[in-house]
Measured scan of single mutants.
Amino acid sequence: DTLHVTQDGKHIELRGLSEEEIKLVEELLRRGRKVEEALKIIEELRK
């Protein structure tokens, strides 16, 4: 699936995420994380 995010005035499209990963990214962003940080966390969880 694809998640569309706008952060720091930039539109970012995150592709290839599972539904659970999207929920996790959304939660991390709500808690003030940056998109880059959220993606690093997803990458770690995929290992």
Rank of each mutant, 00 (worst) to 15 (best):
D1A: 08
D1M: 09
D1R: 04
T2G: 11
T2L: 04
T2C: 09
T2K: 09
L3F: 03
L3P: 07
L3V: 12
L3N: 07
L3M: 10
L3C: 11
H4N: 07
H4L: 11
H4I: 15
H4T: 12
H4P: 07
H4Q: 09
V5P: 05
V5G: 06
V5S: 05
V5E: 05
V5M: 05
T6M: 14
T6Q: 12
T6C: 10
T6H: 13
T6F: 13
Q7I: 13
Q7H: 07
Q7N: 07
Q7R: 01
Q7G: 07
Q7T: 08
D8T: 03
D8M: 02
G9C: 03
G9S: 03
G9P: 03
G9N: 06
G9D: 08
G9R: 01
G9T: 02
G9M: 02
K10S: 10
K10A: 12
H11G: 06
H11N: 10
H11M: 07
H11D: 14
H11T: 14
I12C: 06
E13T: 09
E13R: 03
E13M: 08
E13S: 08
E13L: 10
E13I: 14
L14A: 04
L14K: 03
L14P: 02
R15Q: 11
R15T: 13
R15W: 15
R15L: 12
R15V: 13
R15K: 14
R15I: 12
R15F: 15
G16R: 03
G16D: 12
L17D: 00
L17V: 02
L17E: 00
L17Y: 10
L17P: 00
S18M: 06
S18I: 04
S18R: 07
S18Y: 06
S18N: 10
S18V: 05
S18T: 14
E19D: 12
E19T: 13
E19N: 13
E19P: 14
E20S: 12
E20H: 11
E20T: 13
E20I: 11
E20V: 12
E21C: 02
E21R: 00
E21M: 03
E21Q: 02
E21Y: 03
I22Y: 10
I22Q: 10
I22V: 10
I22K: 14
I22W: 09
K23A: 14
K23F: 10
K23H: 11
K23T: 11
K23N: 09
K23W: 11
K23G: 10
L24W: 09
L24K: 06
L24D: 02
L24V: 10
L24M: 12
L24G: 02
L24H: 07
L24Q: 06
L24T: 09
V25F: 09
V25W: 04
V25A: 07
V25I: 12
V25L: 09
E26Q: 15
E26F: 15
E26N: 14
E27Y: 15
E27D: 13
E27A: 15
L28N: 02
L28Q: 03
L28A: 05
L28C: 01
L28G: 01
L28I: 07
L29C: 02
L29A: 01
L29Q: 01
R30A: 09
R30S: 10
R30V: 05
R30Q: 08
R30L: 13
R30G: 07
R30C: 05
R31A: 13
R31P: 01
R31F: 14
R31T: 09
G32D: 03
G32K: 05
G32Y: 05
G32P: 01
G32I: 01
G32Q: 02
R33D: 05
R33A: 13
R33G: 10
R33M: 14
R33C: 06
K34E: 08
K34P: 11
K34Q: 08
V35C: 01
V35R: 01
V35N: 01
E36A: 12
E36K: 09
E37Y: 15
E37V: 07
E37D: 11
A38F: 05
A38Q: 00
L39I: 13
L39N: 02
L39A: 04
L39V: 11
L39T: 04
L39C: 02
L39R: 04
L39M: 13
K40H: 11
K40I: 11
K40S: 11
K40T: 12
K40W: 14
K40L: 12
I41P: 00
I41N: 04
I41V: 11
I41T: 08
I41H: 08
I41G: 02
I42C: 01
I42K: 00
I42G: 00
I42F: 02
I42D: 00
E43V: 09
E43Y: 15
E43I: 06
E43P: 00
E43L: 12
E44F: 14
E44A: 11
L45P: 00
L45N: 08
L45H: 07
L45M: 12
L45E: 05
L45F: 10
R46D: 01
R46I: 03
R46C: 03
R46Y: 03
R46F: 04
K47D: 09
K47C: 06
K47H: 13
K47L: 15
K47Y: 13
